[in-house]
């Protein structure tokens, strides 16, 4: 099982790579793994809160183009071939 994880904008610089891969089975597991490998990202992505959605304001996490807020949050399950995209706060128009 392989999940592709893509970092964008300032997260790409902080991770030092644009893409990594994991075999996590859900988003929570993905963060556990990925943030261990890219420790510099942790404080920019997660809050210290103990809520079940400890994502920092403005950070967007998509699984196959769908924001996890509108899926199952951190419990969103992952399948082989899924693509997870992680964005810092962005804006424009």
């Amino acid at each position: 099982m392989e999940i592709k994880v893509k970092f964008f904008a300032s997260f790409r610089d902080k991770a030092g790579v644009p893409v990594t891969r994991t075999s996590a089975r859900n988003v929570q597991e993905l963060f556990n793994e990925v943030l261990e490998d890219y420790e510099g990202l942790r404080g920019h992505i997660l809050t210290d809160s103990s809520s079940d959605f400890p994502l920092k304001k403005g950070v967007t996490v998509m699984v196959n183009g769908r924001n996890i807020r509108f899926l199952d949050g951190f419990s969103t399950e992952l399948d082989d071939g899924d693509v997870v995209a992680i964005f810092p706060p962005v804006g424009g128009g």
Partner: peptide, 26 residues
């Protein structure tokens, strides 16, 4: 604000920072 502050998204990448996020969102 993270989007508008110095070194924030608009200041660092301009409005083009949207290409990837809107593309990923389909």
């Amino acid at each position: 604000h993270d989007v508008t502050k110095p070194g924030g998204a608009l200041n660092s990448y301009g409005t083009g920072v949207l290409v990837n996020i809107i593309n990923e969102a389909g």
